[in-house]
């Protein structure tokens, strides 16, 4: 694994673990976590907190026959699901992303958006938007206004902006107040997964981008 310098915030990790984020945000988090064991450990630690909440929940009364119905279900599924072994199938696109692009980067239907930059919008729930961006080496992205949260994960190549240098696995977390003009590194064309929220519908999501003081 390469060294990843730009990570998820605790707010995003809690939201992912609690299961309250839009699908597109979950997608970029799952993709980053596939590349970043630090954030994977942080997500699993927060899942442990979810487990503690579940375990401490006052038990509800089950309907009579709930156990029997479940036993019937498991007896009907006599062969256990084999261990999913998902070895990385694509050097650029991690597993969770592959599910959204038809199994291969070659299957992506790019659309030109100017300056040689191409994008492809991925199909997710409408509360946030996920897109793949293809930025030719050395190209500057136009200063794109985003009103809410914008998450950018580098999959290939690298880009530089006022916030720093972002290479494969790094995720940039930008709020509306950040005006940035990323420039793709000269060495290689840059491919990113970018997610923006729909600010009117998800007021407050951008707050998750702010680091906590306490964790």
């Amino acid at each position: 694994m390469t060294t990843i310098r730009h990570h998820l915030t605790d707010g995003l990790i809690i939201g992912y673990s609690a299961g309250t984020l839009p699908e597109a945000v979950n997608l970029i988090i799952a993709t980053h976590v596939s590349l970043c064991d630090d954030c994977r450990a942080a997500v699993e630690a927060h899942d442990a907190l979810g487990g503690a909440v579940l375990d401490g929940t006052e038990a509800a009364k089950l309907d009579e026959g709930c156990l029997d119905a479940t036993l019937e279900m498991i007896r009907a599924m006599d062969t256990p699901a084999p261990r999913d072994i998902q070895m990385p199938q694509d050097p650029v696109a991690p597993g969770p992303l592959l599910d959204y692009i038809g199994g291969s980067l070659d299957a992506v239907k790019w659309r030109p958006v100017g300056m040689g930059v191409k994008q492809a919008i991925l199909k997710t729930s409408p509360d946030a938007t996920a897109r793949l961006l293809y930025i030719p080496a050395g190209t500057a992205m136009p200063d794109h206004g985003h009103r809410g949260l914008e998450l950018t994960l580098v999959l290939q190549g690298a880009f530089q902006d006022d916030e720093g240098y972002f290479a494969r696995g790094d995720i940039e977390i930008a709020n509306a107040d950040l005006h940035h003009t990323p420039v793709a590194d000269i060495s290689q064309d840059c491919i990113c997964l970018a997610v923006t929220d729909a600010p009117l519908r998800l007021k407050g999501l951008a707050r998750l981008a702010q680091p906590f003081l306490n964790i």
Binding site: D10, I14, A18, V53, L54, G204, R207, F212, N214, I215
Partner: peptide, 24 residues
């Protein structure tokens, strides 16, 4: 937060437990 019953703003304000040890 885990019941999915907080707004995103509220989640951001939820102060965390020390999860450092289990994370390591």
């Amino acid at each position: 937060a885990y019941f999915g019953d907080l707004t995103h703003t509220e989640i951001a304000e939820a102060t965390g437990l020390p999860l450092g040890t289990i994370k390591s």
